[in-house]
Write a protein that binds this DNA or RNA. Structure first.
Lengths: 213, 213, 213, 213
DNA sequence: AATGAATGAGCTTTCATTCAT
DNA sequence: TATGAATGAAAGCTCATTCAT
């Protein structure tokens, strides 16, 4: 039992260390950009020594994979929380999801930049792609289900859930790029209004009009 | 006149070399990704020697800046050609622009990956941002102008040109990400249909409905 | 205490490494000349690996600065030892200092060449100049003090300590150049005789005549 | 005859080009230091093209050799002129030579730095050494001859011309180093006074006392 | 498990030299 | 003779990785 406890503790510690290093990695990417981050930076950010990353992650590549996975998990957690905390209606949920992506805690230049840092490499890193693909599939499934519900309920003709889901998720990803490139111009409220306008234009029975400025 | 010809030829040759190196750079980024490209790769791809890039661009950074600028210029050229070649009506033009972004020559995984490779670094490279910002401003201006025309013509209430422009350009950028991450799932025709569906939903007098599959 | 020992040992080791690299640098400069020495040479001379210098000195420049500083320190140590070991009289001390500069361990072509290698760059390296300036100031102060003592004691009229100090130190530096350029012709005994002749000519009460060959 | 004229002109031009490049080299060394000068710098300073040095000098090494030779020749010219222009007495001539080395046109930090730049490499460049050796031999011969004359004329006992020559030339070279390292402290008048003081101390019948400040 | 000195492959950059014009 | 684009060897430096402690 003592042995088990020890093992348990060790495992916990090991997991904490990994998390600590992943956190440090995100901070470093946010501060210096993907191409400038070194394992030395990460170790220093974590307050640990040079060789620590290779000890816990074998290689830089694996650290980055895990960091992306963690980033995706964090987002998923927020995604699910947004679903849970929203009103029960499909429209509420859909709106909550759209609002999530434009919430400061998500759509913040620093954070968005990290996402783009990974997407910038995704083409040449199958591991990144796999992680992103899985997440995307999940979000698409959820959004499509909500759309199907709305379409059925509103008897909207000519609407395809898959198309709308595509549009909606693309839109938020595209808005992040604006936030990244034109931070001065970019206005998260205007963006949210634009999204609401779109929702109203396709689901007029479920969403209200947006006041024109 | 001989002197002029000589000078002209020399200048042309110098410019050609630079273009050759920029082309090689794009190919290399497309093949290996931003973080793996070395000046050696670029020189080799161009069939020239090691030192050639520094001879013509001073540094790797400057080569990359020029490469992005070139990428942006290429896009702008296609953008303007699409505008010119489309029908005269604002709706035609708007549709042509949307279609452009999903045309295989643009929305091709290899090419999109290069854009994302640059966007992945944009946060930490003011030069990249400047280039992207300028392009974005131009496209936004054009798209807004078209929207304004349509809104006036169709007497659409509650629509804001700025919002629609934001949505439209975000959408295409977001669709590129889908193309990058889910190339198997991603269907450019479905995407185009989705965009058309959106256009129809907001400008019903100018765009026709999209057939549901 | 174990911890202290460890720390002490580590610190010592680090300092030893630096010293080892500085020693290797001097050897390399002596063997190949300033303009031919590479960090690879230094590392190889020290029996260590390529990157070692940058690990311990950050840059080649800083290594060279430290090497010069070390060279100056070594000289200062010998200077002070010569002062201490000589007879108590000012004349003894002055003579000891002059003799020091012409002693084989100092005025040896290899060593002199290293000094000139640094002086050859001193104009364009403020760091070198600062080091040399400080040393010079110290030696001048000591030599002037001795001269003052002699002048007072001998009631020499028309002599200025500052001038004599200038002459004496210039003379030895100039003799080093002879040793460097005309090693066959240069005779350290003749040089010492010449210096002694000068000392006798100005301080006849404190220095004896030199036998003419 | 036309052919001869042409050849003559070509030869002349060729020689002029070489001189032009040597001058540019000196300027560049003075401005940037030996270790930073590139053939590109030299060509640019001369207002000519990249490859010009290799065309006229075969290699960088040979250009530097010629530059040092030119520097030595310039000095020799001034040396001989100083001899010619001085009063006829040996004492006048000796004094003129000493004064020459401390004249602003010679003992100027920029110029001195160039000399030291070459001396800094002399150990590892036999060609440099040969040039310096020859010059030294010549100056030593002249100075010794003057000393011999003075010694004979003044019936100075215990003086050796060789020793005095050594002292005198060492002194001026050493004073140059002071000028190089302590330009603020270094005072050419004080230095000249110090030299005069020395001359007076050994040749009291030929040189007058120096006023004490 | 953690350290941090050491390694060495690989990068960007510089520059003497070559060569077609 | 002169040009200047091109070459390619070699430099300084970085950094993921290893390893003795």
């Amino acid at each position: 039992m003592a042995a088990i406890a020890k093992t348990a503790k060790r495992t916990a510690t090991r997991e904490q260390r990994r998390q600590q290093l992943i956190d440090a990695t995100m901070k470093c990417i946010a501060r210096k950009g993907m191409s400038s981050v070194t394992l030395g930076d990460v170790a220093h950010e974590a307050g640990l020594s040079q060789g620590i990353v290779n000890l816990h992650f074998e290689s830089k590549d694996k650290l980055l994979n895990e960091t992306l996975r963690c980033l995706a998990d964090e987002y998923k957690t927020q995604f699910n929380r947004a679903l849970r905390k929203s009103g029960p209606a499909a429209a509420d949920k859909l709106h909550a999801l759209m609002e999530l992506d434009l919430r400061p805690s998500i759509c913040e230049r620093r954070k968005v930049a990290v996402w783009f840092a990974f997407w910038g490499e995704v083409r040449w890193r199958p591991a990144y792609r796999e992680i992103c693909e899985q997440s995307d599939a999940y979000y698409d499934k959820v959004v499509q289900a909500l759309c199907i519900e709305l379409i059925a309920d509103g008897a909207y003709k000519n609407l395809t859930a898959a198309r709308i889901s595509t549009i909606l998720t693309s839109m938020t990803n595209g808005l992040w790029l604006l936030c990244l490139i034109n931070p001065e111009t970019f206005d998260r409220h205007a963006a949210m209004n634009a999204v609401d306008e779109y929702l109203y234009s396709i689901f007029p029975k479920h969403f209200g009009p947006v006041e024109t400025p």
